[in-house]
Amino acid sequence: PPQTPIRAAMYSIQQLRGELTSASDQPSGNLIVYFKNCTVDPSEEITKRVEQLGQIFCQKFAEAVGQRCEGLGKERFTLGVQLYYKVMESMLKSEEKRLSVQNFSKLLNNATFHTSLLACALEVVMATYVGNSLKNGNENGNETDLCFPWILDVFQLYAFDFYKVIESFIKAEPTLKHNMIEHLGRCEQQIMESIAWKADSPLFELLRQSREEGPGEQAEPPAT
């Protein structure tokens, strides 16, 4: 049947759910093998962090949309966790092929990596639903408050760290629709053009360090 904007948006929610029907909100067997291959097994920390971030997410979601929607927040968070574990497994497989290593202990014990990855997965879920409510014509609904960069504030995540996962996320999740890839591209642009330059951004410290390392480290002469 012809696609109306609502049907197209609903379709993308159905697609998102469809893509995730076989994904679990627990680490898969392959992921557990990666965890076991680490010098320090990150399993417990990952499970604990997902629980903690879940509580924060549901609380902030209820505050933004209304207490009666807490169940909705749980539902969205669960979808986000499914996508988080799915993309993590795909990322590790491609890194294993690229680097010919199986021990990802440093990466998998890096809390910022996990928080950024989960935030990106939740941003995909939230943008899919918000896109739907916008198409429904209720621009004034509370859900539009949940647009990017809402998720950065919820997880107290630096935009700079969120930025790091975007490209690898898109490469690792081939089922992302073009409107979602465009959305993540816009998030990236928004970070580069404004959010990353907030006063407390770690970017300034990194720039300071690179300047201190001196001209020897300058990768390119100004002329280029």
Partner: peptide, 21 residues
């Protein structure tokens, strides 16, 4: 994908971005 400008080099990936290489 025409919808996104990929900027990472062949030798760059998520491990390098999080200083885990």
């Amino acid at each position: 994908s025409p919808d996104y400008h990929f900027g990472l080099e062949e030798h760059e990936g998520i491990s390098e971005l999080f200083d885990c290489d």
